[in-house]
């Protein structure tokens, strides 16, 4: 079947990465919007959470879909990593990159692993480890310096992952045109920084006691 053939091809796998990445960015947007309520007050955030959970069907479809997209992104990414290692059976004695600023692209798999770890712990903490209201849980979580630092480090990992991932997604979709490349270049800094700012400032907010 053409679809199977397509996703088995090298470009198809790129597409799967890019499409799933695109959905994950959309998820980040909605998550960031919801979390932004914390900048107002924990009470408002709690109200937002309550509102959301009053529609169990939406939550169920959303979370399962999200899980699927995550799984696809992770499985395909790992597959690419393993296949690509095999494409050069014998490595070079000297490793050197010809382009500058290649740290993000060279470490996608590692920043990805950090994010996976984060997602697992975060999901555990806010759902299974959730005793009482979500508002109370995050207040408790972020009161710990180490938890807050772990979150912040993970968000830096997210920014690094996105700084390559966003541009890479567009390149895979074939969006590479001299007219728009400088815009894309700027966006690939702005978007990761935006998420870092929104997500990263929340633990800071709590850590420095201004969150309530």
């Amino acid at each position: 079947m053409w679809f199977i053939r397509f996703i088995q091809s090298s470009i198809g796998k790129k597409w799967v990465m890019a499409c799933s990445g695109f959905f994950l960015i959309l998820f980040l947007c909605s998550h960031a919007a919801g979390n932004a309520t914390l900048f107002s007050s924990v009470a408002l955030f709690q109200a937002y959470a309550n509102q959301l959970h009053s529609h169990p069907l939406i939550v169920s479809v959303f979370s399962k879909g999200l899980f699927l997209v995550f799984a696809i992104h992770i499985v395909t990414g790992s597959l690419l990593f393993l296949q690509n290692r095999k494409a050069r059976s014998q490595g070079y004695r000297i490793h050197k990159r010809a382009i500058k600023n290649s740290q993000a692209s060279a470490t996608m798999i590692y920043s990805g692993i950090i994010l996976l770890l984060f997602v697992l712990l975060h999901t555990y903490a806010v759902s299974f480890g959730n005793h009482g209201t979500i508002g109370a849980t995050i207040t408790r979580l972020f009161s710990s310096f180490f938890v807050s630092m772990f979150y912040i480090i993970s968000f830096i990992g997210l920014a690094i992952h996105l700084s390559h991932g966003f541009w890479s997604m567009l390149q895979t979709f074939g969006i590479n045109h001299p007219t728009y490349n400088s815009l894309i270049q700027r966006l690939s800094y702005i978007i990761p920084l935006f998420f870092l700012l929104i997500f990263g400032s929340i633990p800071l907010l709590f850590l420095f006691g201004t969150g309530q």
């Binding site: 091809s9 090298s10 470009i11 690509n84 382009i99 290649s102 692209s105 996608m108 895979t172």
Partner: peptide, 22 residues
């Protein structure tokens, strides 16, 4: 051409831009 490229045992592109640089 893409199918043959895959069959020949080349790896998958992950947009690292090294090719362009060299």
């Amino acid at each position: 051409m893409v199918t043959t490229m895959d069959k020949e045992g080349f790896g998958n592109c992950t947009n690292e831009r090294e090719c362009e640089a060299v």
